[in-house]
Design a protein around this nucleic acid. Sequence first.
DNA 1: ATCTACGAATGGTATAGACATTTGGTCTAG
DNA 2: CTAGACCAAATGTCTATACCATTCGTAGAT
Lengths: 265, 265
Amino acid sequence: MSTPNVAPFLSIRLDKDSPNPIYLQIAEGIGELLKSGALPAGYVLPPERALCERFGISRMTLRQAMGLLDREGLIESRRGRGTVVTPARLRKQQQELKSFSEEIRDRGGRPESRLISLERTLPGESVRDFFELGDQQKVYEIHRLRLKDGEPLALEFVRIPERLCPGLERFDIAKNSLYQILEESYGLRLENCIEEISAEAPTAKLRKLLALPKNAAVLVVNRKTFAEDGRAVELTRSTYRGDQYSAIVRSVRKKKPILRASTSS
Amino acid sequence: MSTPNVAPFLSIRLDKDSPNPIYLQIAEGIGELLKSGALPAGYVLPPERALCERFGISRMTLRQAMGLLDREGLIESRRGRGTVVTPARLRKQQQELKSFSEEIRDRGGRPESRLISLERTLPGESVRDFFELGDQQKVYEIHRLRLKDGEPLALEFVRIPERLCPGLERFDIAKNSLYQILEESYGLRLENCIEEISAEAPTAKLRKLLALPKNAAVLVVNRKTFAEDGRAVELTRSTYRGDQYSAIVRSVRKKKPILRASTSS
DNA sequence: ATCTACGAATGGTATAGACATTTGGTCTAG
DNA sequence: CTAGACCAAATGTCTATACCATTCGTAGAT
């Protein structure tokens, strides 16, 4: 065939007046085709020039879209050969920053929360340094019991500088997501976090609070959360029932540097 | 000043005949400047057009380099404002697939390994399914004790299909990295893994092997490793001393529900 | 003094084309 | 029948240019 088969891509519609740039529309369109599994792994995509013609765009623009798909691991290109669809299990997936509620719901449970205490207090030295606070600036210290499907799952100890969210005690922290309050009411856009995960034997107090069985351990997650502008926002120690909860991590082998243009918006 | 200050970039030399493309040379050059800390966080880079002139290249090419740096989180660009250097703590760091030895050395310890047993055996059903094996195909089962600075740190239980590495018993698994053997002697290019991290109370046997103190928990890491072509390569259960080891994870907030323009290796 | 409108500067998107490099097939000479 | 030359097709790199969108300082009006 002298005219490459672009049939599967006919459904993609471009809107030149959309606020979304063309390369994004293309990437989303093709991306959905790939994620939906409409094209089998190993399927050879039409060459770039054919797709350009099909969409009526220039090649650099198309390549910007392909670059996005490539970075997501949806496609793989080889110079001289062509571009093929990556098998689903090789596709990348970002480690995602989620609230407790989001995470429990993702795992198919019903999240719940009970406020144990909320204090406004002067932090210790290490905490003060972490948040870059002055001598007299206070932090909120929140203890919450987290439940899944009515059963105690974790004890959470959150520390947030008062400076970032003055008047936090006015909110109903048991009912509302803390992340949501921070983002919507205080305009703190959380961007990333670092977690340190360890295992411990529970104290007697914890055994009682979490209703732990006789011979159980707890999973401790120490989390540091940062906002988009780089400020430290939150310092949390979560203690999970070891028999009810586990953390899942995905790692990738380091490769060569990547190529192609990008956006940051 | 009408001529933007490009002084810090004068040291970057381009070689148009190099096999490395120009945009890569630029990205590496600027990237090293940034990683070395020569430019303070928040430093405003010269505008793209000035850098183009400085390097004698076209803007699209420069932007390709900037795209790389942006994706690594080294710089941040805002339309209308300019491009600034990201604070070091916000820079991206891919979750990396590492061997035990690599990881211990990264943390500043001396890794060691003792082989407890190596068997060639018929796997159970779930393992057979995971590796997609036939009825009669066997797997290697390896138990190793892992030490850091001479102290027991973890017990490791590895399963690998014999099909992928026939004759594995000929290697000295205590002395050499298993990952290295798989990559160099069997040509298995490991690409990514998924780990599930949980906390458990140790069995009596484990307490003895790991020389665990009276009231200690263990951190259990179940790892599934896949090769570049997507085949399942390894299934490992590592049991760490909870008082000596913790896992570190980094997460990123998902921005729009669609494709992301940054991040990836 | 304050507000507004404008415009310059800057990064973001898009075009059209050129040449380089790699791959894989085909043709040809031996 | 094979080895090598050659060619076509595909992605990779690069240029030069144009215009768009956002930001911010400033000149001018009130």
